[in-house]
Design a protein around this nucleic acid. Structure first.
Lengths: 215, 215
DNA sequence: AATATATCGATATAAATATATCGATATATT
DNA sequence: AATATATCGATATATTTATATCGATATATT
C-alpha cells in the first residue's frame, strides 16, 4: 500500500541539526532543560520559528520552562534519522573526498562511511581515515550484498552522472552529491546536493551589492 | 547617504551558479543562444522559475529564441560578483581547509584565496595548493594592508568565533563559514554558512520517512 | 504569404514559510 | 497566598517564493 509520505519543510530540516548541537552542548554542561528562546538567541532566529521547528519533531515541552534536554535530543535525533547509524559508500577520493573520509564526526550524525571507491588503482593501496579504498568496479556487488542505503559523490562534474547510475543500479536509495550538476535519477531516489558555488554566489552577490550602495 | 539595498531572493542566488555552469558549457560547445526551457530541463526546474531568476540579473532575451549566451553569462557573472576576482584569506588548514586550498576552480567564481592561516607553526612551513600558510597572528596586519574583503573559516566549532572576531577587527566584510556554529558578528558583516550537518539532515530525515512508509 | 509554435516578459494566483497573537500553565517574586 | 512573568501550544496573519496565465514576437512550417 502506498502511504502518502508526510513531508516536512526543508528549511526546518536544515535548522534542526543546529538546535541539536546546542542541546548536546548544554546537556554536557549539566543543564536539564532548554527553552526555544535560549536556542533562538544563540541561532539569531525568532523563538516562534524555533518552537515550530521543534514541534514538528513531536517532543512536548513544559509551559514556562522549556523542553527536557534529553527528550529534545532524542526526538530530534530520531526525526533526523540519526539514531542507529546508516552505512554509506563514498566515490571519488580526491581532495574533498579524502577530507570527508578523515572527518571523524559523521558518527554523531549517524553516518558510517564504511568504504570508499575510485577509478585510480593507486588510491586503493592505502586506507584513508581508516576507511578502505576500492576500485569503483567493486561497488555494485558490495553495495548489494551489504544493502548500503547512502552514496556520497565527490567526483568531478564530468563523471558524477555515471557514478550516480552505478549507485542506483546497485540499490542505493539516497545520494549525497558534492558535484556541481543536477543528477538524473529515478524519482524514488533521494538526492541532496552540497553546492559550494551556490553558497559562494549568495555571499559575493550580496557583498557586491553592499559595496555598490556604500559608494 | 544610506541607500536601501535591494535584496534578491536567496533561492534565486543559489540557483544562478548552476545556470551559469550550463551556459558556459553550451558556449564551449559552440551554441550562441540558450533558452530558459533548455536550462530548466537540465536543472529539473520549472522554466517559469528559471526565467524569473534570469530576469533578476537584468539580461534581456528574444521572444521565441532565448538569451544570447554571451550576454547571459556576462549578466549572471556581474550579478553574482564573479567578474574581477575578490581576494580571500582562509583560516584553519585542517582536512577541509586544505581541500579548499587545493581546489583550483574558485577562480571561475571570482574567488582568489591568496593566503591561509593556522595556529600550528608546523603548517606554516609549506605551501598548500601553491598558497602560503602563515601563523594566525599575521592575519590582522596583512588583511588591513591588502584590504582583503572575504574570510573563509575552516576551523572547528570551538575556535570559529575567535577567528571571526579577528577577521572583523581586521576589516573583513564577508565571512564564508564552514564551522557548525552561528557566528556573532556586527550587522554590517555578511556571513554565509556551509553546513554539512544541515544538508545531511535533510537527506537522512527524508530517507527515514521513505523507509517507514515502505514497511 | 499565412499559420503554427516556442519563448519572452508581465501580471496574477497559489503554495510554502515566517511572524504575530492569545490563552494556558508552571515557576519566580512580592 | 497572590501576582507577575516566561514559555508552550494553537491559531491567525503576513511575507516570501513558486507556479500559472496571457499577450507579444520572432522563427519554423505549411
Amino acid at each position: 500500500m502506498l502511504k502518502k509520505i508526510k513531508s516536512f519543510s526543508v528549511p526546518t530540516l536544515r535548522r534542526l541539526p543546529l538546535y541539536l548541537k546546542i542541546a548536546r552542548r548544554e546537556q554536557s554542561a549539566g543543564k536539564l532543560i532548554i527553552s526555544c528562546s535560549d536556542i533562538a538567541r544563540e541561532c539569531r532566529l525568532d523563538p516562534i520559528l524555533v518552537r515550530k521547528d521543534i514541534a514538528s519533531t513531536g517532543v512536548v515541552g513544559q509551559a514556562r520552562c522549556g523542553f527536557p534536554i534529553d527528550k529534545l535530543i532524542e526526538a530530534v535525533e530520531i526525526f533526523l534519522g540519526w539514531r542507529g547509524g546508516k552505512d554509506a559508500f563514498l566515490v571519488g577520493v580526491g581532495h574533498l573526498g579524502a577530507a570527508l573520509l578523515k572527518y571523524e564526526k559523521f558518527q554523531e550524525h549517524g553516518l558510517m562511511i564504511i568504504a570508499a571507491f575510485d577509478i585510480d588503482k593507486q588510491k586503493t593501496k592505502q586506507k584513508i581515515g581508516n576507511i578502505p579504498v576500492f576500485l569503483i568496479s567493486k561497488l555494485p556487488d558490495l553495495a548489494k550484498r551489504m544493502r548500503v542505503p547512502i552514496g556520497i559523490i565527490t567526483v568531478n562534474a564530468d563523471t558524477a552522472q555515471d557514478i550516480a547510475d552505478i549507485m542506483v543500479d546497485a540499490g542505493i536509495k539516497a545520494i549525497w552529491n558534492f558535484a556541481p550538476i543536477v543528477l538524473k535519477v529515478p524519482e524514488s531516489i533521494l538526492v541532496e546536493n552540497v553546492s559550494l558555488s551556490a553558497s559562494l554566489g549568495v555571499l559575493t552577490s550580496q557583498l557586491n551589492r553592499q559595496k555598490d550602495s556604500d559608494e
